[in-house]
Design a protein around this nucleic acid. Structure first.
Lengths: 188, 188
DNA sequence: TCTACTGTACCGTCTGGTTGGTATAGTAAA
DNA sequence: TTTACTATACCAACCAGACGGTACAGTAGA
């Protein structure tokens, strides 16, 4: 009759349950009990899949990181091989992601979690190191390229925390400016 | 003989104790017991000055915000009235602050705290709104000025979380680029 | 039957917050 | 100067609830 769920399916359900809790109620509400209930299984069942909360949160980071990375690679492939191509893909992927309010509120909690869970933090740092490497070999002057990356990250930061983010019209102008900067490497 | 401490003195001792705990052990270790011990008084004494943990954390945010704001105004005064002057002061204040590793690790915890303590978050949002207003009247094209602000915030973000921040030599080049952008408003 | 998985009941610890009380300093009427 | 009173600053002990994690019996698909 009803097939048994595979471990992978269950894990994804758990990750989505975690994400919903973080979006709706924040990190403090991400308890094992709450996750188990939201994922539709018992606490014992949850702890069967993840032996500890740390393991759960590490998995959650990998899960969301993979989603972003996949989209980034998609956009990078579409961007071609021109100078600054990768940087443009990074900008587009970032803006696309953080512009979604659901995603923004989720990431606020994920960043808050990183402070407590050092291993997850380390994972993110490694990601950024790899992205920065791509920035530096993207065919632009490394300093300018890094400046552009920082502007993108700053936009992400502002959108995520809702720290006076530019309104959508101005944001579009700024994003255009950013993309411009990846095309005229000798503008400054 | 030994004078009784004034409430203001004690509060400052408490804020410094909080800051040390956050720097050293992070938000999870910022318990009322730990703060009381680090500040050299009892938990009851601590709760005399701050009726709840929320009140304590709000006070802590104001404390550190005032420190930054004071420095920002100092630098802004030194910068004069040229176009982009305020933006340059903002850039210098931000870089100066976040380049100090002690300060960076403290702010990681403060940002993590904002997720849990909405009132503190709201305080920061208002700060950013006011800063953004200054950015927009700083005498440059608003979009470009905002782009510069976002680059500064992005640098802050990278330094704070240690997400592939530029090494000091390149950082100096980038900061110069940023300051350049506040001087040639028609560069793009 | 074996294995993969689930559910329940429970435990030790920690945490924010409460309560009731003490010590010191200042003030002002007698 | 004494006495009575108030405000400020602080403390020790305690508590209810929540949390991460464990133990273990049970169950359903292969």
């Amino acid at each position: 009759m009803s097939q048994r769920r595979t471990a992978v399916e269950t894990r994804e359900m758990i990750f989505e349950a975690c994400s919903n809790i973080l979006r709706r109620d924040g990190l403090a509400s991400l308890t094992l009990d709450a996750v188990a209930e939201a994922a539709g299984l018992s606490k014992g069942g949850l702890l069967y899949h993840f032996p500890s909360k740390v393991a759960l949160i590490e998995g959650l980071f990998e899960y969301h990181n993979d989603i972003f990375e996949l989209r980034l690679q998609e956009l990078a492939a579409a961007e071609g091989d021109d100078p600054g191509a990768w940087l443009r893909a990074y900008a587009k992927a970032s803006v696309e992601q953080i512009t979604d309010p659901d995603c923004a509120s989720l990431y606020v909690s994920l960043f808050a979690a990183e402070e407590r869970y050092a291993s997850a933090h380390q994972l993110m740092r490694q990601k950024y190191v790899r992205w920065q490497q791509q920035v530096e070999v993207s065919g632009l002057d490394p300093a300018l390229a890094t400046l552009v990356r920082l502007a993108v990250d700053g936009l992400w930061f502002a959108e995520m925390h809702r720290y006076a983010p530019p309104l959508s019209e101005r944001r579009e102008i700024i994003v255009d400016l950013i993309l411009q900067l990846t095309k005229n490497s000798d503008i400054l």
